[in-house]
């Protein structure tokens, strides 16, 4: 903090009493930077996440599913937008954050670097990926930074439809033909471990965890949230009649939790650092959309400037 001890004390007094820090409050510079990085990464994940599901809009197998998927992907654009706006309250522009994304200086969630190969992947993303995201995000609705917490309240409310539609899509498949059921199982096989990896590395290897907890940005550790997700999801897989691809997954009465196999964290780091199946494709798509839209954004800005000038001349 470029401020005084008094300001620092005021900041911690708010955080320690579970209050909310608002944009114009004095805050430690490192707190501000951490928040910008986290909100930007979160926003980037939403807009990159439009691609793997958007991949199936044109081929959705019924008009009802097409409408649902279109609405869901549209929500993701909206969520990206809320989050960029929350980050902007800390004095960075969306353009700047997109520039950081496009030049690989900021990351997005590793999960979106996996391909959606069949229709069942759309269901699996809704059920598992959105389920994991909600597990991560619900505690963020109580995050110490007001604009981030408020954006998350809105997002979590909207996300619950995402998870339910995914589960329902999979349930329809598992109650369908043998081929449909096989498609659903194949999707679960491919998305299970990448979904577990969404919670990040184990706490003992996580670099930012302690500080983020101290600041009230993070409320629970990665391992605890991952466990919570497994505990919630395993019984749902039973209802679907699908098998989670983990021979060691079983209820542990003593712990009151499921035991399970950890995801491959080496793979997680490889994918985050650029070596996933779709990293290059996702970024090329994103940069192309931005570049091809430049003339449109410029035209609208030029029109607004012209009109303002005309209004001034007429006044």
């Amino acid at each position: 903090m470029a401020g005084t001890d008094e300001q620092e004390a005021a900041f911690y007094a708010i955080v320690d009493s579970d209050g909310r820090i608002e944009p114009r409050d004095a805050m430690p510079e490192a707190y501000r930077k951490t928040l910008i990085r986290q909100m930007a990464q979160h926003a980037h994940s939403e807009i990159i996440g439009m691609q793997p599901e958007g991949n199936w809009i044109s081929r959705a197998p019924s008009l009802r599913r097409k409408a649902i998927l279109l609405a869901k992907v549209q929500d993701e654009a909206g969520h990206g937008l809320y989050l960029y706006a929350a980050a902007e309250t800390l004095g960075v522009s969306r353009d700047h954050l997109l520039e950081l994304l496009h030049t690989h200086q900021q990351k997005y969630s590793s999960i979106f670097n996996y391909p959606t190969l069949t229709w069942a992947d759309v269901g699996a993303i809704g059920w598992l990926v959105d389920g994991a995201a909600i597990t991560n995000q619900v505690p963020l609705t109580r995050c110490s930074y007001g604009p981030y917490a408020r954006a998350m309240v809105r997002i979590c409310k909207e996300e619950s439809f995402h998870q339910r539609q995914g589960f329902e899509a999979l349930l329809t498949l598992t109650r369908g033909s043998a081929r449909q059921k096989a498609m659903a199982q194949d999707a679960l096989d491919r998305w299970w471990y990448p979904s577990l990896a969404m919670f990040g590395p184990p706490d003992r290897e996580s670099t930012h965890s302690d500080q983020s907890m101290r600041w009230g940005i993070k409320r629970f550790g990665n391992d605890e949230l991952r466990q919570r997700f497994v505990d919630m999801t395993a019984p749902q897989a039973d209802v679907l009649g699908l098998t989670i691809p983990d021979p060691d997954l079983r209820w542990n009465d003593e712990r009151g939790h499921y035991d399970f196999t950890q995801p491959d964290f080496d793979e997680l780091f490889r994918v985050i650092s650029g070596d996933g199946p779709c990293n290059r494709q996702r970024m090329e798509h994103r940069v192309a959309a931005h570049t091809e839209g430049a003339w449109v954004r410029e035209a609208a800005a030029a029109y607004a400037a012209k009109r303002a000038k005309r209004a001034e001349a007429a006044a």
Partner: peptide, 19 residues
Amino acid sequence: LGEWVARAPELEEDVAMAN
């Protein structure tokens, strides 16, 4: 119009075209 999703000139326009 569905082909424009994730390709619009700006995020706000992605939402509008999807609508």
